[in-house]
Design a binder for these strands. Structure first.
Lengths: 341, 341
DNA sequence: TATTTTTGAACAATCGATTACATCATTGTT
DNA sequence: AACAATGATGTAATCGATTGTTCAAAAATA
């Protein structure tokens, strides 16, 4: 059952030569004669020799593997980013190791510890909702491993980051609601220690201010980015008798909760309440009415993250100046927010 | 910048002892004195020593890592199974390495090659849609690494497998459609070299036969499991003037395509055409009308897969008899298929 | 033919851990 | 006082690859 793995020593023995010769032959080293190379290769394929990654990476000190740490893979945005990373990684000869924090700080820390034990040569990460302090990421960096953040990035750290224009798109989508006749726009926000939610909230507020609309506290639902909290936030607005004619949700799932509540209570969308989301999850196109949202160009974000990280990995030793890239997002206008159309 | 990693040799040098003592101290070996253990541990934490996974796994011959190879992580079912696997893996001290085939045979082969190079101690897999022959999985097994398949499993291979009762649930859901007055039920199938689609189709056919309903070729849409192909299949049925009053889709995305076509053409669901899906993707609850589907208990499937694999890993050497587990699925009845109700 | 150059392959160190075995000092036994 | 038992470390081999150095034989040159 447990058949031994073939090693270069096995090959060497059968060919009456040494492991070093076998190793060089397999690498097409110039110092090895043609017939020897032939013989080695032939035997290697015959015995289905596979180079032992563990030995190789120990010897070389790197393993051509990049780690990805995301809150959840079961979100279209993250899955898409991963896809983008994989295309670039594969093209550059890197493998990808995916880990999830499930939005939990403690799990994030555990995953990070595993990763830096020599499993990866660099990391692409997006922090969990619970992550306020980043000491664990700092000790990851202290080991000298390159790190690139995307989307949810800690702003206290001096690392490469890639984000989208959260502020600008939130501003723009809020103005879109205003243009559609909304003046009392509720904000379904997320934890503001996370850059994206802070920036989206800021864009929303500034758009209101610039349009001479009041920013009201009762319209600010602090934690409403899941389906459940979105539903609840909507329910509370209604039951508290708060007057509002739109919801700007900082995430699609919060918007979904709002829509489901509206459906249940027969609140007309967008007639009574216009709704917009954020992330352009696929269900937004399916739901009735289809949901206006912001596409974050996940594939591109993934590609750029991977390129940055690989560059850092391959220039290791030379001091690398962290870069920050901000991608332009795209607002996808759908019926949930358009009153005249 | 590139700060050297601390090794046990560094610790030994600073403590005027040897690496073996340090190693033993860190493992709480009984032969090491208390004060020495204390000193080692203190220095280790002070210098933030991390054991080198590459060296460790080379030495030990295993790395406490299990690989997962799935078509896509961006499917609720697969993401859920992965979650289930992770819970068990974490509890047993294993890490998880996730890879995607993106439904492509060639990518599946590449991922598999990477995995067997000593990166994992065992693999949990579900094959891609393109996978007809399994020689690549056989050569994975030939290296002696344990392998467990779930859901989409090759029936030619003698390995542990975990599936759900596709046949039974398809039979039952077809009878449900019949009970709702449907007699001309279209089958939106998938490639029948994949066990699950073959079994679902068989359950459908047998239910029709047992209820004395004809199995008509024109109602069998061979490849309709994506949103696009589902849409197209529906369009073709209609444009070919085929009489049908229900769709049993072997996958939720095929059902989604059908529903979107129906929505576009104002075909009443379930009045004119009743529709059922398979996999219980979350959008099924959101879409209007909500979609009847089959829940596959992904978490449980993941848990059991992980348990089986870990057991095989830890009993390596002893010859292991492959097991097959069939889980009971659950039909989630929703309005898309209920005419009286 | 004697000497130098080239060629092809062997030798041995290394990566960072673990672990069987050897060694030494101490304590206990008779 | 002689000897065994114990406890605490050190020595060295090992996992499977890579690679700088060495070395012998063959080829080229004088």
């Amino acid at each position: 059952m447990t058949e031994k793995r073939i090693t270069i020593y096995d090959l060497a023995r059968q060919l009456n030569t040494t492991a070093s010769t076998v190793s060089r032959a397999l690498q097409d080293h110039p110092g090895i004669s043609k017939p020897m190379k032939e013989a080695v290769r032939k035997l290697a394929t015959k015995l289905n020799y596979q180079t032992n990654y563990r030995a190789l990476s120990l010897r070389k000190g790197f393993g051509n593997t990049i780690g990805i740490l995301v809150p959840q893979v079961n979100r279209n945005f993250f899955a898409t980013v991963i896809h983008g990373i994989e295309t670039i990684a594969a093209a550059s000869g890197y493998h990808v190791l995916i880990c999830q924090s499930f939005e939990s700080l403690s799990k994030e820390k555990i995953q990070l510890k595993n990763l830096l034990n020599g499993r990866v040569d660099g990391l692409i990460a997006s922090v969990s909702l619970e992550t306020k302090s980043c000491t664990h990421f700092e000790s990851f960096m202290a080991t000298g491993l390159p790190l690139v953040f995307f989307d949810r990035v800690p702003d206290t750290m001096d690392v490469s980051k890639i984000t989208i224009d959260d502020y600008a798109s939130a501003y723009k989508i809020t103005e879109h609601l205003i243009a559609n006749g909304c003046s009392r726009i509720a904000l379904f926000g997320g934890p503001e220690h996370i850059n994206i939610y802070r920036n989206r909230a800021a864009g929303y507020r500034d758009a209101l201010n610039d349009n001479k609309l009041p920013v009201s506290g009762e319209l600010h639902c602090v934690n409403a980015i899941t389906r459940e909290t979105g539903y609840q936030a909507m329910a509370e607005l209604v039951s508290n008798g708060v007057a509002f004619d739109a919801v700007f949700a900082a995430g699609d799932y919060g918007a979904l909760g709002a829509m489901l509540y509206a459906r249940e209570k027969r609140i007309d969308i967008p007639g009574a309440v216009a709704i917009t989301g954020y992330a352009n999850e696929p269900f937004g196109e399916i739901i009735d009415p289809p949901l206006t949202s912001v596409d974050q160009h996940g594939i591109e974000m993934g590609r750029q993250s991977a390129r940055m990280l690989i560059e850092e990995i391959e220039h290791k030793g030379e001091s690398y100046i962290p870069r920050e890239i901000v991608l332009r997002s795209e607002i996808i206008y759908r019926p949930s927010s358009q009153r005249n159309g």
